[in-house]
Design a protein around this nucleic acid. Sequence first.
DNA 1: CCACAAAGTAACCGTTTAGTTACTGGCTCG
DNA 2: CGAGCCAGTAACTAAACGGTTACTTTGTGG
Lengths: 226, 226
Amino acid sequence: MDKLQAEGKARKVANGGRADRAAQRDPERTRASILAAATVEFAENGIGGARVDAIAERAGTNKRMLYHYFGDKEQLYLAVLEEAYIGIRTAEKSLNLSDLTPEQGVAELAMFTWKYFLEHPEFLSLLGTENLHRARWLRQSTRLKELHSHFIDKLADLLDRGKAKGLFRVDADPLNVYLTIAALGYFYISNQHTLTTIFGRDLMEEASIEAWKRHIVQVTLASIRR
Amino acid sequence: MDKLQAEGKARKVANGGRADRAAQRDPERTRASILAAATVEFAENGIGGARVDAIAERAGTNKRMLYHYFGDKEQLYLAVLEEAYIGIRTAEKSLNLSDLTPEQGVAELAMFTWKYFLEHPEFLSLLGTENLHRARWLRQSTRLKELHSHFIDKLADLLDRGKAKGLFRVDADPLNVYLTIAALGYFYISNQHTLTTIFGRDLMEEASIEAWKRHIVQVTLASIRR
DNA sequence: CCACAAAGTAACCGTTTAGTTACTGGCTCG
DNA sequence: CGAGCCAGTAACTAAACGGTTACTTTGTGG
């Protein structure tokens, strides 16, 4: 064994130009940059197309560190997925709807979801990958099972208030309303490339995005109003 | 070179139990079974996760034939994608809405789309894969560019008739209506696994599926009615 | 009836891939 | 102040992968 201990530092690689580190040793920073790089790589290529070497290079480190901090490719993917879910759940918490009228509240929740999807296409992409694999990693993660959304509760509250005022249909269901909002946002963004190609119209220009936001709100409200 | 021409038929593999062929030589059948196997493999694993060996085995043939008929992995994927689009376009043609009232017509179109998505999850999966890759193969395919949907025209016609009767909003837009129908169907099915995991409810049981179909129709109509 | 082309087989090949080994450098705490 | 541990590097490896080669089999038209 160990035939070449005397060789050691052969090629010095000249950095590669990725993440220049302030301190040479910074576990937190290294871990975070691997996670960020992995998020991009998994979102762009799916789990089968993602390359461990590409992640290491993007993170400005090397494979060894990736295995050191995350174990293997699948566990790294799981960490990426968990972080993505934590991201949206954290953002959701910041949304306070209790001061708004039921209609305003539902509209606000819909616009929030749209905005979040628009600003986090990597989350949508990871969702797509996860669904391709029948939620294999999501189901496996105890951490994610404990991290539930409060949106259904918030919506139930808004709907109850609206029903009490006679504004909303008594059979309006919070899960249905949430799925409607999520579906309209998700599809438009995640399928933008095939849609744009087929219909020959750029769905991602400012005006179209704004129009679709209004459409989501209008459709959602129209479906629950009496 | 050629060290072992005398060996030849070493292992006879005992079929593997896949597609038993009637005739030993049937190009049409071989081609079709490779395409069918590839559709399953690409739909289940995406382009990065799909394995050429797995496709050959599933098709009851070997890699050589796959390369013989389709060139390489990417061209095979393109053939799969093209066939999937041809499938939905063909089905769309069979739908005649001109005898229905505008409301019935829109409802029928929505239910048709829902049913097609439900019966062809592999099409949704391929769409997801294609969008992950920014519609790279769809854009590349001249064959698919010529194969446009007639749904937007059919919807435009229904909406015009509805507007003339004063039933529909004058600003109702056919593309918006189509995107709404497609979004609600696509998201529910393609994201079933993460949704089921997170909400702890099986969205794929008969009653839920039926309820979502009614929901799609109701939401679509509510969004265009005056 | 046989020559020839197309269909089919399986072993092979070079490259890429996830994952590992063997090592060096630097921070910290007794 | 130095021993030991943790961060970090780069070269290595075995297996898997897409793609090819070399060859056999089978149906068909002159």
